[in-house]
Amino acid sequence: MDSEQSFPQPESKPPGRERPVLSAKLDAAFTSVYRVFAFLGRFFKELFRPPYEFNEIIRQCYDVGYKSLFLICMTAFITGLVFTKQSRPSLSNFGATSWLPSLVAIAIIRALAPLVTALICAGKVGSQIGAELGSMKVTEQIDAMEVSATNPFKFLVVSRILATTIMIPVLMCFFAGFGLWGSYVDVHSNESTSFTFFIEKAFEKINFMDIWTSVVKALVYGFTIGAVGCIRGYNAKQGTMGVGRAANSAVVISMFLIFIEEMLIVQIANVFR
């Protein structure tokens, strides 16, 4: 049935299972780690290689940022209000309620804003990315992109990771703003403090290093949420069960990594402080 042509032969590989180098489980673990780094390596390679999917990046930024904004702002306002309310009795025992704005500002800007924003987005955005890409994978939509001469990695993965990396810091700024506003509402209702005085006191103890560290944290968390969601979704298997697993593991792994990163970045920031 074949024509008379000369075929260059690809390197032939005998069929059958290869013997594990260490043990089957260890081999699988190292292979998984290799695949994660290969995936991240491909992300950085595709990131700088044209053509760029600007429209898709903007659409993803809208999805990640604008659609999470209300949730972030509400959570931040309530967190600021409750945090101030809970801290007041302890400080009033020492007659130090005037320190409330500084205390709340340090807590929100240094720790709560990047961490809580990231945790909320890990749940909301991470699961969405995992499920969306997972579903596309098991219904062959990613394969369909590939065979229609489109680079699915650039369109789906690069745009999503970029969107989360850009938008989590933006959402963090909103969290900080609304958190301080919530705190101000409580302080104002108890001490009739003016807004200007509250802001002055709040930023008295905040320096450039605090803000810079929080921005770096938010960038790292944003990248983590996007990357984990994409890795889990893009490699989803086994039908609908695989989609559920991809969404679930995207959230769990992101949250776990965010806490590890929080610990490391705080340690590094303390060295420079």
Binding site: Q5, F7, Q9, P10, K13, P14, P15, D143, E146
Partner: peptide, 10 residues
């Protein structure tokens, strides 16, 4: 989308 283990695909 898949690579053969051996053989030619033109």
């Amino acid at each position: 989308m898949l690579q053969p283990d051996s053989g030619g695909v033109r």
